[in-house]
């Protein structure tokens, strides 16, 4: 138990964020289908958000930094609107190929 508590949560979550970024980059790069590229791109974005929020985290007893929080909140909405546009373009593309 004592050994586990020695892990700095900030370190752990920053590493997790960067790993997510790497997985997402891999998928965006290699997937052939556009929808899968979009999912991977969103995993990549989640990695960036996680890294930012982990940096904003200042331990159990201090309030976190609100500026990266506001940035990530903005980022989530921008990401979902870009995803929505991309998915509609993909649907149009598929409809056009069917005809």
């Amino acid at each position: 138990m004592v050994g586990l508590s020695a892990i700095n949560p900030q370190f752990l979550y920053v590493c997790a964020g960067i790993f997510l970024f790497a997985i997402g980059l891999w998928g965006t790069w290699l997937h052939a289908h556009y929808v899968r590229k979009i999912i991977s791109l969103n995993v990549m974005g989640a990695g960036v958000f996680l890294t930012l929020i982990a940096v904003a985290y200042r331990g159990e007893h201090l309030p976190p930094d609100p500026v990266p929080h506001a940035l990530v909140l903005t980022g989530i909405v921008v990401a979902v609107s870009a995803t929505a546009l991309a998915l509609v373009i993909i649907r149009r593309l598929e409809d056009a190929t069917d005809e």
Binding site: I53, A54, Y57, P64, I76
Partner: peptide, 14 residues
């Protein structure tokens, strides 16, 4: 990570 605003936004939007 003490980011409840983002937790709400992620669950609803993300």
């Amino acid at each position: 990570l003490h980011a409840p605003d983002i937790a709400l936004a992620e669950a609803a939007i993300g």
